[in-house]
Write a protein that binds this DNA or RNA. Sequence first.
DNA 1: CATTTCGGCAAACAGTTGTTTACTCAATGG
DNA 2: CCATTGAGTAAACAACTGTTTGCCGAAATG
Lengths: 187, 187
Amino acid sequence: MDAALQLLEHQSFSGLGMREVTREAGMSPAGFYRHFRDLSDLGVALVEEALANLHGMVRAAFAEQGDTDELIDHAVDVIADHVRKHPAHIRFIARERFGGVRPVREAIAAELESFTDEVAQELGSQSNCSGWSPEDVRMVARLYVDHMVLTAAALQEADAETAELIIATARRQLRLVSLGRRHWTSG
Amino acid sequence: MDAALQLLEHQSFSGLGMREVTREAGMSPAGFYRHFRDLSDLGVALVEEALANLHGMVRAAFAEQGDTDELIDHAVDVIADHVRKHPAHIRFIARERFGGVRPVREAIAAELESFTDEVAQELGSQSNCSGWSPEDVRMVARLYVDHMVLTAAALQEADAETAELIIATARRQLRLVSLGRRHWTSG
DNA sequence: CATTTCGGCAAACAGTTGTTTACTCAATGG
DNA sequence: CCATTGAGTAAACAACTGTTTGCCGAAATG
């Protein structure tokens, strides 16, 4: 799996070959079948590995309390740190979210969906949207998750200087959304 | 190019072969080189073709005036119509925006950048953000463009029933953003 | 200690890949 | 009307593809 991740730095998943993977891993071609039935099988395994750690992180970021701006700053920092630590995983998710291999695409969609559920639940139990309808809570949760993935994808392929710019923009965008949230009348 | 687009329904670009393309097009493999130097060459040509019509459309959508909600409804309708008419182009852009082939990725990024410029200019000449700093105008323009691309990507791989759901969510999200825009204090 | 499972190998298989070369043939333009 | 060009072809090339088969040693299991 590490070999595949390294190869995916320059290709996308549907262009990957198993001989290529086994060669990078220092194995014989036949050895691949001991671990995976398919290449898509490897793909969904990579999806799980890539999104495993993320759940707890964002839950923790939401658990913090304080000024809205501080909360936003912290959340963006958490994402930026994660991208810096696991760039290959982020790249993989960003590439294959709309990529050419159905099972992988669906695995990512399912994972992001349950991700949105968590965010919605966290939002719902918060004071500032007590009178909101569940659909509206999910809608803004989607907005947050999509924005997070997009920001992470942009950060992953940026050098250090432009990364700061992306972070600053993301912060302002989140602030604007939270402003809209405060004036929203659900019904 | 049409042959490539059709093949890209089930693969992504970095998994495409030129023999595959020429076979689908009903040509001899050597004929490919009469039109393109590379496969990436074909890729950037496809990017231009896919995003050519979009510029005028959104400019027209912004030119309309009326209630904010009507404007949002109309803009979303325009996008949904475009996706229904050119699903292959939208799929291609969504897939390769973060895809594995650098030249294609960069071509899309450049095109979306100039797209953001247009939206920012259109926003700046509007009444409701007269006191805004240029950076803030660009920031919200990015938000709109990203949201548009994401919505189009989601619509493209949805059946008719879920498409309506996506459209409704997109409308509400845009309404929330416009709400934040109204209460934003730039500077 | 015996045996079953796990992870690995080399070899072989027919197909497919990108690219080059030399060759046609219709259209276009002066 | 003659020359040039644009767009196509077939054939050949070595290199690479996914998959199967039978084999092997170590490790875990009873």
